[in-house]
């Protein structure tokens, strides 16, 4: 198989290397209940997208370094100056000023609680997480919004305190590099690649 598509940016332009699509032939779909007449075809498609994180890129980079970044509106003219956001918002949703990036790792380690949760037995195609997936929505003291993530160790319960863990080894640079464990979890219990 030829090189799987990879990309980098140079001079503010994408530079691509390898194949970004793979061609396969269609096959017929026939109606076996009606003389095997042709009804349609399969349409195989295997392609790779390029996706920019734009102003959120520091958040995803920081996960691989064991840090959780949030943002805060510091615009003195904003009625809601000082509001802290997690998920990371590039702009204040009220005044639209660019927010200040804030390292909230320590806050997350001491003031994160499960707001709600669910246990997912069936995932959609292309899911990369082990099932069942324990979704947790986390609220933080002092933060105005709630973050969706997943619990890797322990049983979820509303109000339970949870600690963030980060995929510092072989990071995927996606939101799945951030996970959570219940209080008291040891380093040995963490999934492969994750650290406190």
């Amino acid at each position: 198989m030829s090189l799987y598509g990879q990309a980098k940016v140079k001079n503010w332009r994408y530079k691509l290397k390898g194949n970004f699509h793979f061609t396969h032939s269609p096959s017929p779909i026939r109606n076996v209940d009606d003389s095997n007449h042709l009804l349609g075809i399969t349409k195989p498609r295997h392609m790779i997208y390029l996706h920019s994180y734009g102003g959120e890129a520091p958040f995803f980079e920081a996960l691989s370094q064991g840090k959780l970044l949030g943002t805060r509106c510091d615009n003195p003219d904003c009625e809601y100056q000082g509001t802290l956001y997690q998920p990371f918002r590039i702009h204040c949703p009220d005044c639209l000023a660019r927010c200040t990036t804030v390292d909230m790792t320590d806050l997350a380690k001491t003031k994160g609680y499960i707001h709600t949760f669910m246990i997912c037995e069936r995932a959609g195609a292309f899911n990369t997480l082990d099932k069942p997936i324990k979704f947790v929505n986390i609220e933080f003291e002092g933060v105005s919004t709630i973050l969706m993530s997943y619990l890797s160790v322990g049983d979820p319960k509303i109000g339970k305190r949870v600690i963030p863990i980060f995929k510092k080894f072989d990071p995927t640079y996606t939101i799945t590099d951030l996970s959570w464990v219940v209080e008291g979890t040891t380093e040995e219990q963490l999934p492969h690649g994750f650290c406190f």
Binding site: G124, F135, I175
Partner: peptide, 19 residues
């Protein structure tokens, strides 16, 4: 970026509300 990679299943996003 923030939700779809978590299971790729919309039922999950409602299940947390149900819970």
């Amino acid at each position: 970026d923030w939700e779809s990679p978590l299971g790729h299943i919309y039922t999950g996003y409602y299940a947390v509300m149900a819970q």
